[in-house]
């Protein structure tokens, strides 16, 4: 139980974000109304995705320097979990966008680039599955992953800032921090992010352990 403390922390934080996210005070804003509460649920999906991809790329680098098969397995499973969070982020964003921007897909640069980055990681999974030889597969997919990560960061956090975007904090739009992410919201938003990140790491870790067991049985 002692090494499981972070799993309990993840559960408590996610539950807290659900309770405080609905019952807490939020700033009264036009157009957004109560849907500002989506900040506690939609944005942590993206943060979790980025952190999971970051962990994956760290294991890819580790694999290339060590050749340890477990590092390769870890980097795949973290990408797999990250893709799930990416799709959740896209889907929740479409619902939110439909009611605040008037369309589920208003061709916002941040939306388009997040779709591209998700496709990029789907290509990573396809690339892996298309290679038969284990060492070659591990090496090629590790290199691909290392290239994909900075491109994902540029697509999500740099390019949308250079054009006009509906998302806050992009293209001259004020970020949430400047006008409405007040201290009341921070108290829910940051724990929610941490909780979902830990939950994502937990799921990826479980997947890795199951994959390791499967490999052991095969050999």
């Amino acid at each position: 139980m002692k090494e499981n403390w972070w799993k309990i922390l993840a559960s408590v934080l996610v539950l807290y974000s659900a309770i405080a996210g609905f019952l807490g005070e939020v700033p009264q804003l036009p157009i957004l109304h109560e849907s500002i509460r989506n900040l506690y649920f939609h944005v942590p999906m993206w943060f979790s995705m980025v952190i999971l991809y970051l962990i994956s790329v760290i294991y890819s680098v580790k694999y290339l320097s060590s050749g340890n098969e477990n590092h390769d397995l870890k980097s795949v499973e973290y990408v797999n979990a990250g893709v799930v969070f990416g799709f959740l982020g896209l889907a929740t964003g479409m619902i939110w966008g439909n009611y605040t921007w008037g369309s589920p897909w208003p061709n916002d640069p941040k939306m388009n680039s997040s779709a591209i980055s998700t496709l990029m990681y789907l290509a990573y999974i396809v690339l892996r599955n298309s290679l038969e030889e284990e060492q070659k597969r591990a090496k090629i997919s590790a290199v691909y992953n290392i290239f994909a990560f900075p491109i994902m960061i540029v697509l999500l956090f740099i390019l949308p800032r250079m054009t006009d975007s509906l998302h806050p904090g992009n293209g001259g739009n004020p970020g949430f921090s400047s006008y409405d992410l007040d201290s009341r919201m921070r108290g829910v938003f940051y724990p929610a992010c941490l909780g979902w990140i830990l939950l994502g790491v937990w799921i990826a870790d479980l997947q890795f352990r199951i994959r390791k067991l499967q490999n052991k049985q095969l050999n």
Binding site: K7, L15, L199, I203, L206
Partner: peptide
């Protein structure tokens, strides 16, 4: 809560 309990039970099985 149910989903988290489910995750914990998978964890235990693994």
């Amino acid at each position: 809560l149910a989903l988290i309990a489910y995750l914990f039970s998978i964890d235990r099985k693994v």
